[in-house]
Simulated scan of single mutants.
Amino acid sequence: MEAEMRKKDPDHQFVEDLMVATFSQRRKEIVGDQPLIAEVLSRWPALFNERQIKAEFKRIVNTDLLQSFLDGLDSLVPRLLELYKSAARSGKKQALKCILDCLVRDDTNERRRAAALLGLPQYISGEDPANVIRICDAHVEILEEDMKGMQLGLLIGCESGEPDAIPREVFDVAVVVEETIVLHNIKDVVVAFSLLMGVIYCMKS
């Protein structure tokens, strides 16, 4: 599996067959030994791509990751946005107002989903949003500083300059675990959140 993943164009069906065959061993190692993410990356490199995170989630719970995430999110979006509006009106959550203002300019379903997700760390009292979500210049090659202190979250790469609270031009979203990028080249913020949940589930369940 490691040799196959080192190829420029790995055989995805071959990798899938290997991942299925080693599923029980992998779950025993990850759940039982609770290794650091660097060890998991080294031991199971095939796990950390969008295709295999979705596949591993389905192997664990027999449910489609993205669809189940979107179904749950859509049921919560209206209530979350109302909570954000109330908090923004109090004057204590300026960042939430910036997110909501983006919806005034472009109120699509996709943007409402992104607003609900990006607003959560801003809304939760006592939580530093930068611990979970950081927006950075997509063209900066050295990311160590951007990831510093981030134990679990998303690094959203946008065009240089002052980004919108809900980024319009997303070049790359990376899933970060223990200050390490484990998954990247994601072009959609909502999909990135679902994959973050998938990574959490695959590492803990």
Rank of each mutant, 00 (worst) to 15 (best):
E4C: 10
E4R: 09
M5L: 08
K7N: 08
K8Q: 11
D9A: 15
P10T: 13
D11P: 01
Q13F: 12
Q13C: 12
F14C: 15
V15H: 03
E16I: 09
L18I: 12
L18E: 07
A21C: 15
R26E: 01
K28D: 04
E29Q: 05
Q34D: 09
A38V: 14
A38I: 14
V40C: 02
L41D: 03
R43W: 03
R43N: 06
W44S: 01
L47A: 06
L47P: 01
F48A: 01
N49W: 01
E50F: 06
E50I: 08
E50N: 09
R51F: 07
I53G: 00
I60M: 04
N62H: 12
N62M: 11
T63F: 10
D64N: 14
L65T: 01
F69M: 03
L70V: 05
L70I: 10
D71N: 13
L73C: 07
R79K: 13
L83V: 12
Y84V: 04
Y84I: 05
S86M: 15
S86Q: 14
R89K: 14
S90P: 09
G91F: 09
K92G: 15
K93N: 11
L96T: 02
L100I: 12
L100H: 07
D101P: 05
D101T: 06
L103P: 11
R105A: 11
R105T: 07
R105P: 05
D106R: 07
D106F: 09
D106I: 07
E110A: 15
R111K: 14
R113T: 03
A114D: 02
A114H: 02
A114R: 02
A115D: 02
L118A: 06
G119R: 04
L120M: 13
G126I: 10
E127C: 15
E127Q: 13
P129T: 06
A130C: 14
N131V: 14
V132W: 01
C136A: 15
D137P: 03
D137R: 07
A138T: 06
H139V: 09
V140E: 14
E141C: 13
E141P: 06
L143G: 02
E144F: 09
E144K: 10
D146T: 10
M147E: 03
G149D: 10
M150R: 02
L152R: 04
L154M: 11
S160H: 12
S160K: 14
G161K: 11
P163K: 05
P163F: 05
I166V: 05
P167L: 03
E169A: 10
E169L: 10
V170R: 01
F171W: 09
V176T: 03
V176G: 00
E178S: 08
E179L: 10
I181L: 05
V182K: 00
V182R: 00
D188F: 02
F193Y: 02
S194F: 00
L195R: 01
M197K: 05
I200Y: 08
I200R: 04
K204Q: 04
S205E: 04
S205V: 03
